[in-house]
């Protein structure tokens, strides 16, 4: 089979179609996922293909949506529960972190919860404080959960399939701003295993670990820096839980510098964890303190001028790399 260009959302949608065709235990529930195909078109065509039994609209009831998924997963089904905007996980948090995440362990391994939660995160659309957040660090902090943040169409497809095949509760966070981004996607069904970082660009002068939509921004920055002879390695962890520390550390040992970029707020963000791991594993290889570039410690603002200042972009990544490399 061949590879062609698909948009991010279409690639995700294709993954959903193919995994539902493959595994009859996979079903999808969420608000407006069936008749409307999801407010972001993520689930277009699934109702028509797989019918009302497997593709269901729910009332606005996030706690029940996730809880239903937990119960059904415990019985061996493979639910995909959609939460539309990542911010809405707040409403369902008990079911996610007290129930789904802990059942396996606290029941002594008796129950597996092969639940997949899909949602869309990220700012940049003037959707303001309750529709723009990047909360992956919250989730990554909870033992029992796995968290994926696809940054390419290829990964959007591969990670949703990997998530659904995984026997643990997983959360796949799509990027609202990337839905229309195009990239090569193989036609056949494939899964990307969790915990394998992608070296998005090889380089020797510094490592950028970029999360989600910051990956394309970092690649843009790398291109800008390349014209000045600065060689940047860009690493996309793809999943922040589990986190592929080995790939990151190997890269930093080569480049001796690291910048971590994410659009979640810096304080307590996943960058803090990555930074800590780098210094623990590669301290003797560092030529500079591990740097972070992330959102300031404020909710996401509405006005475009504020939001632009809030979210890192290629230009600021470029500056941050130059600061990191500055030699006198």
């Amino acid at each position: 089979m061949s590879t062609r260009e698909l948009t991010y959302v279409k690639a995700f949608n294709e993954g959903m179609h193919q995994i539902m065709a493959e595994d009859p235990d996979v079903f999808l529930i969420g608000e407006d996922v069936a008749g409307y195909g999801g407010v972001f078109h993520m689930f277009d065509g699934l109702l028509d293909t797989y019918g009302q039994k497997r593709v269901k609209d729910t009332p606005i009831a996030e706690q029940a949506i996730i809880g239903l998924g937990v119960g059904a997963a415990a019985r061996g089904l493979r639910p995909v529960c959609d939460l539309m905007f990542m911010d809405f996980i707040g409403v369902a948090m008990d079911q996610i972190f007290n129930q789904a995440a802990k059942m396996k362990y606290m029941f002594g391994g008796a129950v597996s919860v092969p639940l997949t939660i899909t949602t869309a995160g990220g700012a940049g659309m003037s959707a303001a404080a309750q529709h723009s957040q990047s909360l992956e660090a919250w989730l990554a902090h909870i033992p029992g959960l796995k968290v994926a943040l696809p940054a390419t169409p290829y990964d959007a497809k591969g990670l949703i399939v990997g998530a659904i095949r995984d026997d643990n509760p997983t959360i796949v966070v799509l990027q609202k701003k990337m839905l229309g981004v195009k990239g090569p996607v193989p036609e056949e069904l494939y899964a990307i295993p969790f915990g394998e970082a992608h070296v998005a660009r090889e380089g020797t002068d510094t490592t950028i670990v970029a999360i989600a939509r910051m990956v394309p921004e970092a690649l843009k920055a790398a291109e800008m820096l390349a014209s000045d002879g600065i060689s940047v390695e860009v690493i996309d962890p793809r999943t922040v839980q589990p986190l592929d520390t080995d790939t990151i550390v190997a890269s930093v040992k080569k480049t001796n510098r690291a910048l971590i970029v994410h659009e979640a707020v810096e304080f307590g963000g996943i960058g803090a964890e990555i930074s800590s791991q780098i210094q623990e594993e590669a301290f003797d290889y560092l030529d500079a303190p591990v740097a972070r570039l992330a959102a300031p410690f404020a909710p996401v603002p509405y006005a475009p001028i504020l939001e632009n200042a809030y979210v890192p972009d290629a230009a600021r990544i470029e500056q941050a790399v130059r600061r990191l490399l500055e030699r006198k």
């Binding site: 303001a128 404080a129 309750q130 603002p301 509405y302 006005a303």
Partner: peptide, 8 residues
């Protein structure tokens, strides 16, 4: 002050 927008 421009922080909230339509929904706030």
């Amino acid at each position: 002050k421009g922080r909230g927008g339509s929904m706030h």
